[in-house]
């Protein structure tokens, strides 16, 4: 699923975002990535999503080598990934359902209709009753649930959640974490970055990556299921 050997990331201005690291994450795992702000959590996710190329080492995500990957390869990879962003990345002026549909309408043809798939995903996050509501009318917590519904509808093999609880109160943050954890199954790996470690239940995770100043330290736990 994710394999890294001596991977590092350095930006053109010389900033070292990630020091050389190696890791392996298999299918169906739940991994927490923790660390203070600026420790490199977002850089790691950017690397996994193909937003930046590794400066050195070998990185493979969902069997796609990331070094020297072409634009088309990156797009193909991203279609298999369900990203969940701290700032939601939902489109204003569109309904919750339309936002979910926007994330799946260019994917492979599905058996059901787009709307049906989107409604089913919204149902899973408990927002089917707000499917027609414009995004601006939803609370922050609800918006993040719509973003998760988008990832669910995409039937992604890898969920990458970057500080998904960053803008939420504790109650909503717990709902969101619980939802994300529930997405983990035999085929879906879930990777969540957060600095709110007090909200996490490490026992449920198969591994925790602790980050500090660009350095990764991965510890394996139980299966956590």
């Amino acid at each position: 699923m994710i394999e890294a050997q001596d991977v590092s990331l350095q930006y053109p201005d010389g900033t070292v975002a990630l020091k050389p690291f190696s890791l392996f994450i298999g299918g169906g795992e739940l991994i927490y990535v923790t660390g203070p702000s600026g420790s490199g959590k977002t850089s790691l996710l950017q690397l996994l999503l193909g937003m930046v190329a590794p400066s050195s080492g070998l990185l493979s995500v969902l069997n796609q080598p990331m070094s020297g990957a072409r634009g088309a390869d990156i797009r193909k990879l991203r279609r298999k990934v369900g990203p969940v962003f701290q700032e939601f990345r939902l489109t204003a002026g569109r309904s919750a359902c339309e936002n979910v549909m926007a994330g799946i309408r260019f994917l492979r043809p599905a058996s059901g209709s787009l709307r049906q798939e989107a409604l089913e995903a919204l149902e899973r996050v408990g927002l089917s009753h707000k499917a027609a509501s414009p995004i601006e009318h939803l609370s922050w917590g609800e918006r993040q649930r719509v973003a998760i519904a988008r990832a669910i509808a995409r039937k992604s093999e890898l969920i990458l959640a970057d500080e998904p609880t960053g803008t939420l109160d504790k109650e909503n943050a717990l709902i969101i974490l619980s939802l994300l954890i529930s997405l983990r199954d035999e085929k879906t790996t879930v990777l969540i970055t957060t600095h709110a470690t007090h909200l996490l239940e490490p026992a449920r995770a198969s591994g925790v990556i602790r980050m500090d100043s660009g350095r990764l330290d991965m510890s394996r736990g139980g299966d956590g299921r």
Binding site: L49, M51, I74, R75, K76, L77, R78, R79, K80, V81, P83, R89, L90, T91, A102, G103, R105, F106, R150, R154
Partner: peptide
Amino acid sequence: REQIRTLRLLGAPEFH
């Protein structure tokens, strides 16, 4: 640009 960026991050083809 934000909407376009999101679509790119979701893997939407440029044509789309």
